[in-house]
Amino acid sequence: MSDAESGARDEARSASEAPLRLAGRLALLLAAIGRAVAEGELDRRMFVKSLYETGVRSLPIVVLTALFTGGIMVVQAAPIVERYGAHGLLGWGAGFGTLREIGPLLTALMISGRVGANNTAELGTMVVTEQLDALRALAIDPVGFLIAPRFLAIVTTLLLATLFADALALVGAAYVGAALLGVDPAVFYTGLTSGLLGFGDVAHGLVKSVVFGVVIALSSCHYGLATTGGAPGVGRSVNAAVVVSAAGVFLCDFFVSFLIA
């Protein structure tokens, strides 16, 4: 009990690690990844393997999240649309929120929980069992071999998952709209495509998803690599990684929303 409690305290300390110092560490990690890629150190086969694994791992959860998101957006947009008696606007109402904010945000949070956390756990386990040092002992650069492939795989997966989740959420929304409000899906799609929403709204969300992907990938790799202290240490790292990812995603959402407005 006292072990676990002091563990929780350590975790809190590492999660609340001075934000500037943390940002500095993440920037250094990003620079190391950039250098490995620029110098051709990226292990292509590991990248393909990571991409495949992240993709398979994310698929079920992205599908579920997207369908629920679509439903929630319609239910929330419904009273507003009904208030103005404009059923033709339901597609627009559910659409802009999904494309610009909720789609990218929820997909990022879920992938952070599924893939980011898993990445931290795997890297943390490799660190505490000295597998990372074993790579270095074989004169293999862990950044090019392990970190860069995982980083790129997470960023790519999140971008594709967001695109896919957007589409799926809107289809889900159309059918929930039909069930709940009796709005014909065709009317819903017209509302989506009537010109109030454009490619800009989709792009807005996709740019965000790339930024979110970078945040999630960096913090999950950082905390994995910084793991100390055996199995409880891995748990603490995962905990810190998901907290920092979530906070980072929301913060970046704020800044990116205004930067690309």
Partner: peptide, 19 residues
């Protein structure tokens, strides 16, 4: 299990509760 078990449990917790 071993050191990967705690990490896996933490991952599961986040995913299940968010879902």
């Amino acid at each position: 299990g071993g050191s990967d078990a705690v990490g896996a449990a933490t991952t599961r917790a986040v995913v299940h509760s968010s879902l």
